[in-house]
């Protein structure tokens, strides 16, 4: 089983992005490395849109800038896409989400998708679920398929959990999310659309709360 390993920092950013715009759908890209045999490691995310996911210009310009950033800094590349829908109920990747994910996969054939599911987020906040994210990978010609989390499979099943949190401490992620929320730190995260409306807003979120230790290698610019 090939693994997708995500660090805590990027997951916290996705949670912050969704918390900052609770009434909107949000999306962004995952940055990291594709290591041996299809395994993916996610080091960072760049939040892109929040007003609407269905218009091309902001997304195109955002992707282009992120791509240019990864080329210049080196060390990481675009390895996937994330989305969180405003509406609760559907825990599937929407047709639009699939289209955007296809576009991201043009850059990286091994690309993965993280979907922040509202129902699971609720369970996560109540501490009755560990992981609020759904993982999708491309399955040949059949498109994006949900990867069932091995930890939720029947006990004794030998499938490894497909989405792994680096360090494995989901409880700590929940605590950090609550702390961030209470201190209103999620409001200090800025996505690419906010940058388009005010150029001084930093979509790299270098100053984002507690993110210092998650700075990327080669992030010297």
């Amino acid at each position: 089983m090939v693994a997708v390993v995500v660090h805590q920092g990027p997951l916290l950013k996705i949670l912050a992005h969704a918390a900052k715009f609770p009434a909107n759908s949000v999306n962004g890209v995952l940055l990291g490395n594709c290591v041996e045999s299809g395994s993916v490691e996610v080091h960072d995310v760049i939040p892109l849109c929040h007003t609407t996911l269905s218009l091309a210009p902001a997304l195109e310009i955002g992707l282009a800038q992120v791509e240019s950033y990864t080329h210049i800094t080196g060390g990481v590349e675009i390895v996937g896409y994330y989305q969180s829908d405003s509406r609760s109920g559907s825990s599937d990747l929407s047709p639009l989400g699939r289209k955007i994910a296809d576009k991201v996969a043009e850059h990286q054939a091994q690309a993965v998708v993280l979907l922040l599911d509202n129902k699971q987020l609720e369970q996560f906040c109540k501490a009755s679920a560990d992981n609020p994210f759904e993982l999708f990978r491309q399955d040949g010609t059949r498109g994006w398929k949900r990867v069932t989390d091995g930890s939720k499979a029947a006990e004794g099943a030998d499938a490894a959990p497909s989405l792994q949190l680096k360090g494995g401490d989901w409880k700590k992620l929940r605590e950090e999310f609550f702390t961030m929320f209470k201190q209103l730190k999620h409001r200090t995260l800025h996505d690419f659309e906010e940058h388009l409306d005010d150029a001084s807003k930093d979509w790299l979120n270098k100053g984002f709360a507690g993110m210092g230790k998650f700075l990327l290698p080669g992030n010297a610019l």
Binding site: Q65, S68, Y69, H71, I72, H195, D198, D202
Partner: peptide, 14 residues
């Protein structure tokens, strides 16, 4: 140049 000089190297090639 004025508001986001750190992004200039990413924007120029685009």
């Amino acid at each position: 140049k004025q508001h986001a000089p750190d992004k200039l190297p990413f924007v120029e090639p685009i």
